[in-house]
Design a protein around this nucleic acid. Structure first.
Lengths: 215, 215, 215, 215
DNA sequence: AATGAATGAGTATTCATTCAT
DNA sequence: AATGAATGAATACTCATTCAT
């Protein structure tokens, strides 16, 4: 829960720290999107954030801190949004579908951020890894919970192993919309994507006849 | 098809070029796996390959060429393997399942390579991108073809849009085994993973009752 | 005499200036002792002095001023102490020995300060050099004066050139107690050191026989 | 003896390493003399040595290595010279005088180097300290050995504690010629300095009458 | 008088690439 | 064909100093 690695700032004023970091993150995302983390210089980040290199380092300790801050902010955003949505859902199929749709839409809106985050996390030092994995677990866990509710409600009949895998699948199907945009977004609108994927997730392929038995 | 960007070598002897590049790729994969592309130096690559930095540059033009060579070699390997398997398959459900299983096993065997490749492709310069996308398309296309056969055979009832999406899903479910190993490989053995995913792909979730209609 | 380079302060209240500078010097000596002048930052000095970096600069113009203030304060301290002692001394051998002993004891008590000062003076800008040299001259001059008295008193028979060199030797033998502490302080207590050095200064080595002549 | 901390070079050719390091040391001494270690940049060192910054780092690992190399080279030089001279000396007073004179002359010839070395050693990292102290011990030990011979020969009558202190005094009197040049070199030529110091070391001050007894 | 946020020149170090041998 | 010494552009990070509050 609180694996959150605090990023040290020299500046005391907490409000200011938050403000400056927001500027920083905004600038950094744009740059990372364009050129990736490694090819972006700290000076560029400072400039994009609207202050000097010296000021940048008043709010972070190292370049990697910027990446961490960016990732953290994205997770925060997405978790918040999903949490809010999923929390007051009952375990009905309709709710599940809404949840999936909502998640896919978040990904759609933040595609760039998703792309940046997943392409660059590996540049975080090892000590930030637990934090990232934990966040990923949390995201999958949200759907898992919803699925459990559906099972308890008798709307679904799934073993725990199935249910866990499905929640991962949902998460990854979301990512796909951002990662494989070059292909997927050419074939479908986000609405179509949501509809098709939901259908596949829930009902699988349309099997003809009853060969089904030998699965 | 042949978007293949040729990597220039100063050395003429083609046989030697291939030999040296193999040494290079082998060394590079290990290093990229450990430290990523950016944190690996050309000197390290040369050393791992068993020759001097000067010699390295007799066989490539830039560091990025190494990455390209690595990616290309992985694609080659995977495509080859899948092609061979999928080519002589008929359009039966059993064949489809075998195809999926085979693909998942390739991913399992080459997890490290997959990880390296997908985390580093973005470091390729823009001009290598078409090549990569093309390769990805090819991979999905293999499954698409198989699915088409199944539809033609009357084993499946799928629209083209569904069928295309499913082939992407299969590809991505494979990647998942490598990307989310920290979670997925803790929950399942590769055999279980194959079984569960295949089931989900083919039949979707187990819906209870007939609410199905409202999809 | 008054080559003293005045260090400018923005603050007018003289009393306050002195107070703040004392805090500053105290903090700085500790830091310089540990890490040397160059490796100590102005922020650290301010913090050690108990006020902010902004305030520090209300009392000095540059970092080097701090070093100057530190050196000056040490000289002040040492000169004061020696002056007081040597001033009311007559030109007797006993007085000379007392003077030497007293000086060596000052060095012993302020070893750290001596170490800092002599290792860092070279970091003062050229324009502070005359001040330093003058101070050094003054110190040697005190012993010179005492030696002259002894000669006038007929207790010693020394030419001016000998007498000048001896006063330098005394000063340097004192420094030695601080500089070569790693060796000298392992071999002798300060009392033993005083006794042995005084003996050597006054009587030289114990020569056996009369080979003396060929000097 | 072999506390010598080896400075790593990337270049293999030992001959070349030595050559380049000589260039480096020569350039560095000049610069350190002028501006001190901290105010000298690595680029300046490279330039003064006659090669590029990249090349500089082929022969050292860090800026501090340069300082170490400089100090080491000076010690080497001085030890060599003294060793050669002192080794074939018998324990006669004449030999002792020659030894002192020879040492003072070495200091005179290498005054700049001595100045640089003793003002900057403190900038060496802690792990180089043992090496430096050891070297200093060695230098003092040379004179100690000579003094012991003189005592054994019956030319001098000294306790071990006296003898050890005298050897340190001789070393420091030498340093003095370099450190206090602003004063001492104005008063004496090196020949005069040698003569006067030797006299003081051997015979002490000229005491008149027999007050001597109360020492 | 005191504060501390902002600044940006300055610096050590790395590393892809070249080229003479 | 192979080597490895030389190069210098590039870059993360520091820190003395200023100045608005």
């Amino acid at each position: 829960m609180t694996i959150k690695r605090e990023v040290q700032a020299s500046v005391k004023d907490e409000r200011l720290v938050e403000k400056r970091r927001d500027q920083m993150i905004k600038g950094a995302v744009t740059l990372f999107k364009e050129k990736g983390f490694h090819r972006t210089t700290t000076r560029e980040i400072a400039k994009a954030a609207g202050f000097s290199i010296g000021t940048l380092y008043e709010y972070i300790r190292s370049k990697e801190d910027v990446l961490y801050l960016v990732c953290d902010s994205i997770y925060e955003h997405v978790s918040d949004r999903l949490q809010k949505d999923l929390d007051n859902k009952q375990g009905t199929l309709a709710n599940l579908k809404q949840g999936i749709a909502n998640y896919f839409r978040v990904v759609d809106e933040m595609q760039d951020e998703f792309l940046v985050m997943y392409q660059e996390v590996k540049s975080l030092t090892k000590d930030a890894l637990p934090y990232v994995l934990n966040k990923e677990m949390e995201m999958a866990a949200m759907f898992e919970k919803l699925l459990v509710l559906c099972v308890e409600n008798g709307e679904l009949d799934l073993s725990e192993r199935q249910l866990k895998l499905i929640s991962h699948n949902i998460i990854v199907d979301g990512h796909m919309w951002s990662f494989r945009r070059w292909s997927v977004q050419k074939l479908y609108t986000i609405d179509e994507y949501i509809e098709l994927q939901t259908e596949l997730i829930l009902s699988g392929m349309k099997l003809k006849g009853e060969h089904d038995g030998d699965l």
